[in-house]
Amino acid sequence: MTNLSPTPSAGTTRRFPLTSIDADDFKSFFRGHPGGVSVITAEGPAGPVALTATSVASISVDPPLLVFSVSALSSATPSILAADSVVVHLLDTDDLAVAKLASTSGIDRFADRDAWTRLSTGEPVFHGVRAWIRGAIVNRLEAGGSTVVVAHALQGSVSRSVGEGPGALVYHDRTWHRLSETSRIA
């Protein structure tokens, strides 16, 4: 695993100040910054795991790479970090139940066998989501209390194209929201 290094250039070390923004203040900054909602699944030693994330982004189209981060506080994180591959589910508002399921602590997220299946490669995938991408993990970077994961997209499926569904699912100010044509401002 690569450590996040505060080095601006080879051979020099940059020291950060001893003080930082308070954690609650830092969270408040990002409450006003909406994020698209995704669910990450992987096969762990004890079975399938899932978590909800708002950190998914594409970072390259050639090769096709995506990135996301997982918190050390999530029970799914050790399995995701140990996996060779994951499935990233890109959700719209029709998928709110999947987002809530994967973000709820202390439950068996895979108890409903009718809600998911396994790909031929073994990874768990939820049925009917707007889109999913299976990716091979190619890099992990420790960053504070989280790990940033880079995955190479290998396979995917789109059930509903943008504009066909009810609108994108976003998380903003600690709640779920819908983006649609009526929310367009420019």
Rank of each mutant, 00 (worst) to 15 (best):
T41Y: 05
D24P: 02
S75T: 12
E43F: 02
A82Q: 13
F29N: 05
D94L: 13
D24R: 15
A46W: 00
A42T: 04
A97C: 08
R109S: 11
A83G: 03
A42H: 10
A72M: 05
S69T: 11
P64M: 07
S69A: 14
A46G: 10
A23M: 06
A82M: 08
H89I: 06
L96K: 14
D25S: 15
A42N: 10
I107L: 09
P63F: 00
L81P: 03
S20A: 15
S60C: 11
S85M: 07
I107F: 03
P45M: 05
A99Q: 06
R109M: 05
G35L: 02
A72K: 14
A57D: 09
V87L: 12
A42R: 04
P45Y: 00
R109F: 03
T52S: 12
D95A: 01
S38W: 00
S71F: 01
I59G: 06
A102T: 07
L91A: 07
L96D: 01
A102C: 11
T54H: 03
T104L: 02
I80A: 11
L66W: 04
F29H: 05
A83K: 10
A102R: 11
P64H: 01
F30Q: 00
D94G: 12
T19E: 15
A23D: 13
A82W: 05
V61P: 04
T52N: 06
D108P: 13
L90M: 14
G36W: 00
T19L: 15
S58Y: 09
A46V: 12
V56L: 15
P17R: 09
L101H: 11
T77D: 00
A72N: 09
A83S: 14
V39M: 14
R31D: 01
A97M: 04
A97Y: 04
V86E: 12
P17M: 08
S20F: 08
P64A: 10
A57K: 14
L73H: 06
L51I: 12
A102Q: 13
V87Y: 04
P45D: 12
T77C: 12
V39Y: 07
D92N: 15
D24C: 09
L18A: 15
H89T: 05
I59S: 08
H89P: 10
A102I: 06
A97F: 01
L91D: 06
P34Q: 02
L81S: 02
A99P: 03
I21Y: 00
S75Y: 00
A97G: 13
K100F: 00
V39E: 10
V39G: 10
V61Y: 00
F68A: 09
A72D: 14
T52R: 10
T52F: 03
I107T: 13
D25L: 14
S58Q: 15
S74M: 08
K27M: 00
S105K: 14
D25N: 12
I40V: 15
V87R: 06
L65G: 07
P78S: 07
L90S: 08
L66G: 09
V37L: 05
G106P: 08
I21K: 11
L18E: 15
A99H: 02
D22R: 13
G35A: 05
V37K: 02
S28F: 00
L101P: 10
V98F: 03
